[in-house]
Write a protein that binds this DNA or RNA. Structure first.
Lengths: 236, 236
DNA sequence: CGTTAAGTTGAAGTGAATCAAGTACCGTGG
DNA sequence: CCACGGTACTTGATTCACTTCAACTTAACG
């Protein structure tokens, strides 16, 4: 084997293991997964799979972000989540064989690994231990879907929905002296699509929060000044 | 063993196997599951577990129906689904150990089997084949949650939401010469809680559908006259 | 047969969508 | 360096679907 292969292999391992899924995998399972899968680069906005399609491949995000959403005929859209490195968008459908319930689309240029569905199912049969990872991933997906149902279906109004989304983002963010700070990579329109509100409502609600000193923003940087108050506000 | 035990045991097998979960289970796994679980009767409205609780037991509906819902402080409610015999409400949380995202409440008097969470997890380790059933159940829950997200979060208005719910109910209903007919066991209020609409809106929209000859109802019996048109209406 | 829960219908109020008309921002190329 | 075009954001005015409130009818059930 040429030297470059080793380097590449290490690189691949790291990419795969960015998420939880492959963490607990035995070495030989990991190697086999890599052997069976192929890597590909997806351009920004390129679609990995679409809702209503039958799942033909399993995908692993190695690098970049993938937007999972549901789309309606009239152009309305509901963003479910942004999947990052190590995640397996569409796992549910690949397992069940039912058509995809969501559309996956590269947000930025992405590195993606993928494998034929049948190969993955056979791989699963050879390594039943992987089921534990599968179950964890599925249950996480379900939990997230429930959280979003709570936001979209149970919140009494748009400000509460937005507050809930912001608090979710806080969890992955970085604490400073003046509050929790993070970059808002989504546009107002996309935020609206996460919570079922219009772009304008997002703008208005954000500036309302600013006026009430719950948060501050300059450009795409958002600072949650008073997370406690925001949280009590978001309570459903 | 007394004779009644045999009879009881047969009865129990049938109850467990009403759903998909236990269908594929090896005989000894089934027997062990029964030995470790206890049966209980729940009165109408009695709560099996509540959201935010930590999961301590796994539940199996043997007979009756269990309402799964999310509840907000101010009395608003979102009904996720009605679980019937053979289903395992709360499975996700039992597996992940995270707090319950939903509340489970007996609709009518119910027969329920339950088992200590720890016992179930150990049972799973002894019978990894059960993971296949677990994965199927989880993916089904996820799919359903997605469907509801589509209804609640993506439908443009209440009539479309209601039409989608009715079509869902049609799937489990019985075809006649004049259309699909089934009993609507939910009250208008509960229907509203399924789709995120008020009781009055449900009443009004149903009578609107009736006027447009999409459906008919007498008492709690509902007849979908024109399923095709209702479906095209519900398209999101 | 009376009491309670569910369904119905009308009227008024409201939160958020939509429409409209801007401004700020950013990368590109002259 | 600045004009340009495109995208995102902002803000106000209008509209509308649905909620809420209220009064009433009908059905369910011990």
């Amino acid at each position: 084997m040429p030297h470059t292969y080793q380097a590449d292999r290490t690189d691949r391992c790291q990419s795969y293991q960015a998420g939880e899924f492959f963490k607990a995998l035995p070495r030989e399972a990991m190697a086999e997964f890599e052997a069976l899968s192929k890597r590909q680069t997806y351009a920004s906005r390129e679609v990995l799979f679409e809702e209503k399609q039958n799942p033909s491949r399993i995908f692993v995000v190695l690098d970049g972000q993938v937007k999972l959403s549901m789309n309606s005929i009239d152009g309305r859209r509901l963003i479910l989540r942004i999947a990052g490195p190590g995640e397996l968008p569409g796992l549910t459908s690949v397992l069940s064989g039912r058509e995809h319930e969501v559309t996956a689309e590269a947000l930025h240029p992405c590195k993606i690994a993928s494998m034929r569905r049948q190969d993955f199912l056979e791989f699963l049969l050879r390594y039943p231990a992987v089921y534990a990872s599968v179950a964890r991933d599925l249950s996480q997906d379900y939990t997230r879907a429930c959280e979003q149902l709570r936001t979209v279906g149970l919140a009494p109004n748009a400000p509460v929905k937005l507050a809930r989304l912001l608090l979710e983002l806080c969890a992955a963010a970085h604490q400073t002296d003046h509050g929790v700070q993070f970059r808002l990579t989504l546009t107002h329109g996309e935020i609206g699509e996460c919570i079922g509100a219009s772009r304008e409502t997002v703008t208005r609600t954000l500036s309302d929060f600013k006026n009430r000193h719950l948060l501050d923003f300059h450009g795409s940087t958002l600072m949650i000044r008073n997370q406690m108050e925001l949280a009590s506000y978001a309570e459903v």
